[in-house]
Amino acid sequence: MDIRIFMKSLNDIDIKLMLCKSNFQWKLLAEKYDEAERKIQEFYGAKIPNELTDALGRVRLQLVEKKGHLPPEDILV
């Protein structure tokens, strides 16, 4: 049951990521991902189920790719 809840939150991020159009939206999703990851680690500790680990890795990869597809943020100058 807990796995399903966590998986649902990760899937929500995954789906919303497809509709993400700006860095601001991406940032909100990234924060959601961080929150979900933190909760998972708090709940499972070091024994995170493989299913959740895979989902976390997948969502993170998609977040990174999405960040790369979004308009580049200003450089430092």
Partner: peptide, 8 residues
């Protein structure tokens, strides 16, 4: 591109 970013 900036115009799309309300956070900035």
């Amino acid at each position: 591109k900036k115009a799309k970013e309300p956070e900035k």
